[in-house]
Design a protein around this nucleic acid. Structure first.
Length: 258
DNA sequence: ATGTCCTCTCTTAGAGGA
Protein backbone atom coordinates (compact mmCIF):
# COMPACT_ATOMS: atom_id res chain seq x y z
CA UNK A 1 0.00 0.00 0.00
CA UNK A 2 1.33 3.37 -1.07
CA UNK A 3 0.55 6.38 1.15
CA UNK A 4 1.48 9.90 0.09
CA UNK A 5 1.45 13.40 1.57
CA UNK A 6 1.33 16.59 -0.45
CA UNK A 7 1.07 20.21 0.64
CA UNK A 8 -0.65 21.50 -2.50
CA UNK A 9 -0.65 25.23 -1.61
CA UNK A 10 -4.15 25.82 -2.97
CA UNK A 11 -6.15 22.77 -4.10
CA UNK A 12 -8.06 24.63 -6.82
CA UNK A 13 -5.17 26.63 -8.21
CA UNK A 14 -3.15 23.39 -8.19
CA UNK A 15 -5.82 21.05 -9.50
CA UNK A 16 -4.18 20.22 -12.88
CA UNK A 17 -0.90 19.42 -11.12
CA UNK A 18 -2.66 17.33 -8.46
CA UNK A 19 -4.66 15.33 -11.02
CA UNK A 20 -1.62 14.71 -13.21
CA UNK A 21 0.40 13.52 -10.20
CA UNK A 22 -2.44 11.23 -9.02
CA UNK A 23 -2.77 9.78 -12.51
CA UNK A 24 0.96 9.20 -12.95
CA UNK A 25 1.78 7.78 -9.50
CA UNK A 26 -1.56 6.25 -8.32
CA UNK A 27 -1.01 6.33 -4.55
CA UNK A 28 -3.60 4.37 -2.55
CA UNK A 29 -4.01 7.02 0.15
CA UNK A 30 -3.18 10.73 -0.11
CA UNK A 31 -3.01 13.34 2.64
CA UNK A 32 -3.34 16.91 1.38
CA UNK A 33 -2.55 20.13 3.23
CA UNK A 34 -3.03 23.83 2.54
CA UNK A 35 -6.24 23.41 0.56
CA UNK A 36 -6.80 27.18 0.88
CA UNK A 37 -10.44 26.58 0.06
CA UNK A 38 -13.66 26.75 2.08
CA UNK A 39 -15.50 23.48 2.70
CA UNK A 40 -17.88 23.95 -0.26
CA UNK A 41 -15.12 24.82 -2.75
CA UNK A 42 -13.22 21.53 -2.51
CA UNK A 43 -13.05 20.03 -6.05
CA UNK A 44 -14.83 16.85 -5.00
CA UNK A 45 -16.11 15.85 -8.45
CA UNK A 46 -12.69 16.13 -10.10
CA UNK A 47 -11.20 14.00 -7.30
CA UNK A 48 -13.99 11.41 -7.66
CA UNK A 49 -13.49 11.34 -11.44
CA UNK A 50 -9.79 10.67 -10.80
CA UNK A 51 -10.83 7.54 -8.88
CA UNK A 52 -10.53 8.75 -5.30
CA UNK A 53 -12.92 9.03 -2.39
CA UNK A 54 -12.22 12.03 -0.20
CA UNK A 55 -12.93 13.60 3.16
CA UNK A 56 -11.75 17.12 3.87
CA UNK A 57 -11.91 19.97 6.33
CA UNK A 58 -11.72 23.29 4.50
CA UNK A 59 -11.29 26.86 5.61
CA UNK A 60 -11.55 30.14 3.76
CA UNK A 61 -8.18 31.42 2.50
CA UNK A 62 -5.91 29.39 4.73
CA UNK A 63 -5.03 25.90 5.92
CA UNK A 64 -7.37 23.03 5.04
CA UNK A 65 -6.61 19.28 5.05
CA UNK A 66 -7.97 16.25 3.18
CA UNK A 67 -7.59 12.48 2.98
CA UNK A 68 -8.08 10.70 -0.36
CA UNK A 69 -8.31 6.95 -0.93
CA UNK A 70 -8.50 4.83 -4.07
CA UNK A 71 -10.76 1.76 -3.98
CA UNK A 72 -11.18 1.99 -0.24
CA UNK A 73 -13.59 3.34 2.34
CA UNK A 74 -12.48 6.33 4.41
CA UNK A 75 -13.85 6.16 7.94
CA UNK A 76 -13.45 9.60 9.46
CA UNK A 77 -12.38 9.56 13.11
CA UNK A 78 -11.96 13.31 13.84
CA UNK A 79 -11.44 16.58 12.01
CA UNK A 80 -9.61 18.54 14.69
CA UNK A 81 -6.76 17.92 17.07
CA UNK A 82 -8.10 17.51 20.62
CA UNK A 83 -7.18 19.94 23.35
CA UNK A 84 -8.40 23.37 22.24
CA UNK A 85 -12.04 23.88 21.20
CA UNK A 86 -11.21 27.55 20.49
CA UNK A 87 -8.73 26.64 17.74
CA UNK A 88 -10.46 27.53 14.46
CA UNK A 89 -7.67 26.45 12.09
CA UNK A 90 -8.32 23.45 9.84
CA UNK A 91 -5.04 21.68 10.41
CA UNK A 92 -5.84 18.07 11.30
CA UNK A 93 -8.04 15.29 9.99
CA UNK A 94 -7.90 11.61 10.93
CA UNK A 95 -9.43 8.53 9.37
CA UNK A 96 -9.18 4.76 9.18
CA UNK A 97 -8.42 3.29 5.77
CA UNK A 98 -7.88 -0.46 5.31
CA UNK A 99 -7.41 -0.86 9.06
CA UNK A 100 -4.73 1.82 9.28
CA UNK A 101 -5.21 5.04 11.23
CA UNK A 102 -4.17 7.98 9.06
CA UNK A 103 -3.48 11.31 10.76
CA UNK A 104 -3.13 14.15 8.22
CA UNK A 105 -1.64 17.28 9.75
CA UNK A 106 -0.57 20.79 8.83
CA UNK A 107 1.50 22.07 11.72
CA UNK A 108 1.61 25.88 12.11
CA UNK A 109 4.50 27.68 10.44
CA UNK A 110 5.14 29.80 13.55
CA UNK A 111 6.98 32.75 12.03
CA UNK A 112 7.84 35.35 13.08
CA UNK A 113 9.55 33.92 16.13
CA UNK A 114 9.44 34.72 18.92
CA UNK A 115 5.87 35.95 19.05
CA UNK A 116 2.22 34.83 19.29
CA UNK A 117 2.41 32.74 16.12
CA UNK A 118 5.40 30.85 17.46
CA UNK A 119 3.61 30.36 20.79
CA UNK A 120 0.64 28.90 18.86
CA UNK A 121 2.97 26.56 17.00
CA UNK A 122 4.45 25.21 20.23
CA UNK A 123 0.99 24.80 21.84
CA UNK A 124 -0.22 22.94 18.73
CA UNK A 125 2.87 20.75 18.89
CA UNK A 126 2.06 19.91 22.52
CA UNK A 127 -1.50 18.94 21.59
CA UNK A 128 -0.11 16.75 18.80
CA UNK A 129 2.29 15.12 21.26
CA UNK A 130 -0.55 14.26 23.64
CA UNK A 131 -2.80 12.91 20.88
CA UNK A 132 0.07 10.95 19.32
CA UNK A 133 0.75 9.33 22.70
CA UNK A 134 -2.86 8.12 22.82
CA UNK A 135 -2.68 6.75 19.29
CA UNK A 136 0.62 5.06 20.06
CA UNK A 137 -0.82 3.44 23.18
CA UNK A 138 -3.76 2.06 21.18
CA UNK A 139 -1.41 -0.42 19.45
CA UNK A 140 -3.19 0.32 16.17
CA UNK A 141 -1.15 0.68 12.99
CA UNK A 142 -0.84 4.48 12.73
CA UNK A 143 0.77 6.92 10.33
CA UNK A 144 1.05 10.60 11.23
CA UNK A 145 1.95 12.49 8.10
CA UNK A 146 1.88 15.95 6.61
CA UNK A 147 3.62 19.29 6.66
CA UNK A 148 5.28 19.46 10.09
CA UNK A 149 7.00 22.78 9.35
CA UNK A 150 10.09 21.40 11.10
CA UNK A 151 13.55 20.54 9.84
CA UNK A 152 14.43 17.83 12.39
CA UNK A 153 18.23 18.06 12.05
CA UNK A 154 20.95 20.06 10.33
CA UNK A 155 21.05 17.74 7.32
CA UNK A 156 17.43 18.63 6.61
CA UNK A 157 18.18 22.22 5.57
CA UNK A 158 20.25 23.82 2.87
CA UNK A 159 22.66 26.06 4.83
CA UNK A 160 21.17 25.24 8.24
CA UNK A 161 23.08 28.09 9.90
CA UNK A 162 20.73 30.51 8.15
CA UNK A 163 17.68 28.93 9.78
CA UNK A 164 18.60 28.82 13.48
CA UNK A 165 16.40 31.84 14.32
CA UNK A 166 13.52 30.65 12.14
CA UNK A 167 10.37 29.05 13.63
CA UNK A 168 10.96 25.93 11.50
CA UNK A 169 14.37 25.25 13.00
CA UNK A 170 14.62 26.96 16.41
CA UNK A 171 15.82 24.73 19.26
CA UNK A 172 12.32 24.64 20.81
CA UNK A 173 10.84 23.41 17.51
CA UNK A 174 13.43 20.72 16.98
CA UNK A 175 13.09 19.65 20.62
CA UNK A 176 9.30 19.35 20.22
CA UNK A 177 9.72 17.14 17.16
CA UNK A 178 12.31 14.98 18.92
CA UNK A 179 10.07 14.57 21.97
CA UNK A 180 7.28 13.39 19.66
CA UNK A 181 9.46 10.93 17.73
CA UNK A 182 10.95 9.63 20.97
CA UNK A 183 7.55 8.24 21.96
CA UNK A 184 8.62 5.44 19.62
CA UNK A 185 7.68 6.68 16.16
CA UNK A 186 9.77 5.96 13.07
CA UNK A 187 10.68 8.79 10.66
CA UNK A 188 10.19 6.76 7.46
CA UNK A 189 12.56 8.69 5.20
CA UNK A 190 15.38 8.64 7.77
CA UNK A 191 14.82 4.96 8.53
CA UNK A 192 15.65 4.13 4.90
CA UNK A 193 18.01 7.04 4.15
CA UNK A 194 19.75 7.98 7.41
CA UNK A 195 22.29 10.44 6.00
CA UNK A 196 21.19 11.43 2.50
CA UNK A 197 20.34 15.00 1.51
CA UNK A 198 16.58 14.83 0.92
CA UNK A 199 14.34 17.89 0.59
CA UNK A 200 10.56 18.14 0.32
CA UNK A 201 10.15 21.92 0.00
CA UNK A 202 11.73 24.54 -2.23
CA UNK A 203 10.96 28.22 -1.81
CA UNK A 204 9.52 30.04 -4.81
CA UNK A 205 12.22 32.68 -4.30
CA UNK A 206 15.53 32.79 -6.12
CA UNK A 207 15.16 29.54 -8.04
CA UNK A 208 15.51 27.47 -4.86
CA UNK A 209 14.46 24.32 -6.73
CA UNK A 210 17.01 24.83 -9.51
CA UNK A 211 19.75 25.36 -6.92
CA UNK A 212 18.55 22.43 -4.75
CA UNK A 213 18.27 24.92 -1.88
CA UNK A 214 15.53 23.05 -0.05
CA UNK A 215 14.20 21.91 3.29
CA UNK A 216 12.87 18.58 4.57
CA UNK A 217 9.69 19.51 6.43
CA UNK A 218 7.08 16.96 5.21
CA UNK A 219 7.36 13.78 7.25
CA UNK A 220 5.94 10.32 7.85
CA UNK A 221 5.91 9.07 11.42
CA UNK A 222 5.05 5.36 11.67
CA UNK A 223 3.92 3.34 14.65
CA UNK A 224 5.91 0.13 15.27
CA UNK A 225 3.16 -1.95 13.61
CA UNK A 226 3.79 -0.05 10.38
CA UNK A 227 7.53 0.59 10.66
CA UNK A 228 8.07 -3.16 10.31
CA UNK A 229 6.11 -3.10 7.03
CA UNK A 230 8.02 -0.17 5.46
CA UNK A 231 9.55 -1.19 2.11
CA UNK A 232 10.15 2.14 0.33
CA UNK A 233 9.95 5.90 0.79
CA UNK A 234 10.74 8.77 -1.55
CA UNK A 235 10.09 12.34 -2.65
CA UNK A 236 8.47 12.98 -6.04
CA UNK A 237 10.98 15.77 -6.57
CA UNK A 238 10.25 16.23 -10.28
CA UNK A 239 6.72 17.47 -9.54
CA UNK A 240 8.28 20.64 -8.13
CA UNK A 241 9.52 21.40 -11.65
CA UNK A 242 6.05 21.36 -13.24
CA UNK A 243 4.18 24.48 -14.35
CA UNK A 244 2.00 26.16 -11.70
CA UNK A 245 3.31 23.75 -9.07
CA UNK A 246 3.26 23.87 -5.26
CA UNK A 247 6.36 24.90 -3.32
CA UNK A 248 6.21 21.43 -1.68
CA UNK A 249 6.90 18.08 -3.34
CA UNK A 250 4.74 15.00 -2.80
CA UNK A 251 6.34 12.45 -0.44
CA UNK A 252 5.31 8.80 -0.21
CA UNK A 253 5.91 5.50 1.54
CA UNK A 254 5.20 1.92 0.51
CA UNK A 255 3.99 -0.61 3.08
CA UNK A 256 4.12 -4.38 2.61
CA UNK A 257 0.83 -6.26 2.83
CA UNK A 258 0.28 -7.94 6.16
C1' DA B 1 15.13 43.94 2.83
C1' DT B 2 14.46 41.09 -0.83
C1' DG B 3 12.80 37.50 -3.76
C1' DT B 4 7.54 34.46 -5.52
C1' DC B 5 2.98 32.75 -5.47
C1' DC B 6 -1.36 31.77 -3.29
C1' DT B 7 -6.15 33.69 -1.81
C1' DC B 8 -9.39 37.24 -0.63
C1' DT B 9 -11.46 41.81 -0.90
C1' DC B 10 -13.79 47.81 1.09
C1' DT B 11 -11.59 43.59 -6.20
C1' DT B 12 -8.36 44.31 -11.39
C1' DA B 13 -4.20 46.47 -6.58
C1' DG B 14 -2.99 45.60 -2.27
C1' DA B 15 -2.77 42.87 1.93
C1' DG B 16 -1.65 38.83 4.49
C1' DG B 17 0.45 34.42 4.80
C1' DA B 18 3.98 31.23 3.72
Amino acid sequence: MKIATYNVNGVNGRLPVLLRWLNETTPDVVCLQELKAPQEKFPEQAILDAGYNAIWHGQKSWNGVAILARNAEIKEVRRALPGDPEDEHSRYIEAEVNGITIGCLYLPNGNPAPGPKFDYKLRWFERLRLHAAELFASSMPVVLTGDYNVMPTEIDAYKPERWVEDALFRPETRAAFKTLVDQGWTDAIRKLYPTETIYTFFDYFRDAYGRNAGLRIDHFLLSPQLASRLTAAAVDRNVRGWEKTSDHCPVWIELADE
